[in-house]
């Protein structure tokens, strides 16, 4: 049993009366890869940003989030500046807008290193080149001399990963690291991310809308809906035997080649309607309006029932088997 690195309890992210994340609890152990899945508006990106202390103006987090024993929620900006990059870092979504268009790649990487004052046995340049190698970037010297717009989307995304791992952080939050690249490149980028996380012995929180990414690269999964965790647990059990109706529906509506090869013309089941906006989340279970098995009981917010190693927030868990 490995030690817990991040412990999040009764954690919310809100602006006034609007909440993007509502009272979530979860843990990330050392060396663990956790996937957070949800559609846009589920609150997963705000959750990631809030852990970094980078929420947009007017938003704040409440509850508790402890990173290796240090409370992040009440941490001063000065202390946050100290831990960003070194203890916790982030891989951002859109690599073109996430990199400064007016600075060369090398300069931007340099900053990510310099600030953290990494103790290094080799020279600075050697260290960067070793890193570029681990990022699988061809011709690293030349790439360092380029501006972001001169690189391909996949290369830029790998540079962002390089910046995130530059200072050996203990926790890396990756927010949709592959949505801006196409499927062939997606796998290369994810492979680079995972190999670097493993190399450092860091933990990973991978935020994505893509179930396939989580099921292939993570050990644990959290499914979010309208700011709440509806189901969480080991990937194998959640993906193999989903309990929450939303998880079931999400997995059911996923198209995979396997599915097509076997049952060709079978129609995809769909979830009717759409997720409520965060300004208009209904009371009780937020999924009840789209749920086939909703009953009067769903007017009350279900607690997180423990089923084996996982939690499920639903009043209608038919079978309790793993």
């Amino acid at each position: 049993m490995s030690k817990d690195l991040l412990t999040v309890k009764n954690y919310s992210v809100s602006s006034g009366s609007i909440s993007a994340v509502r009272q979530v609890d979860f843990k990330v152990s050392e060396n663990e890869k956790l996937g957070i899945v949800g559609e846009s508006g589920a609150g997963k990106s705000m959750l990631g940003l809030s852990l970094m202390g980078l929420l947009p103006f007017g938003w704040e987090s409440t509850g508790s989030a402890e990173l290796a024993g240090r409370e992040l929620v009440s941490m001063s900006e000065k202390d946050l500046v100290g831990i960003r990059g070194r203890d916790i870092s982030m891989v951002f979504q859109d690599s073109l807008s996430a990199l400064n268009p007016m600075k060369k790649i090398g300069k931007q990487l340099e900053f990510a290193f310099k600030h953290a004052e990494v103790s290094r046995s080799e020279s600075f340049d050697e260290y960067i080149l070793t890193l570029m190698h681990s990022l699988k970037i061809d011709d690293p010297e030349l790439s360092l001399q380029k501006y972001p717009h001169q690189l391909s989307g996949g290369q830029r995304q790998r540079i962002l990963i390089g910046m995130a791992v530059a200072c050996n952080p203990r926790l890396i939050v990756a927010d949709e690291p592959t949505t801006s690249v196409d499927s062939v490149i997606q796998r290369d980028v994810l492979d680079v991310l995972i190999s670097n996380v493993s190399r450092l012995g860091a933990s990973l929180v991978l935020i994505t809308h893509d179930l396939a990414v989580v099921s292939n690269y993570c050990e644990k999964i959290i499914v979010m809906y309208a700011g709440k965790i509806v189901e969480s647990g080991p990937v194998v059990s959640v993906m193999g035997n989903p309990k929450h109706p939303y998880t079931k529906a999400l997995i059911g509506s996923h198209i995979s080649l396997k599915h097509i090869k076997s049952g060709m013309s079978k129609r995809l089941p769909v979830i009717p309607g759409m997720m409520p906006a965060i300004q208009a989340i209904p009371t009780g279970c937020a999924f009840k309006t789209r749920c086939g098995s909703a009953t009067a009981a769903c007017e009350v917010q279900p607690p997180n029932f423990l089923v084996g190693e996982r939690t499920v927030s639903c009043w209608h868990i038919e079978d309790q088997s793993e």
Binding site: H209, S253, V270, M274
Partner: peptide, 28 residues
């Protein structure tokens, strides 16, 4: 979004039944 994507693809799939129209779908 994932759950909406399936709805749209189903709609296109229905459109392929139309024998008077050709559908060209481009995607990565």
């Amino acid at each position: 979004d994932v759950s909406v994507r399936a709805q749209i693809l189903n709609l296109f799939k229905d459109l392929t039944d139309d024998e008077d129209m050709a559908l060209i779908l481009i995607a990565h």
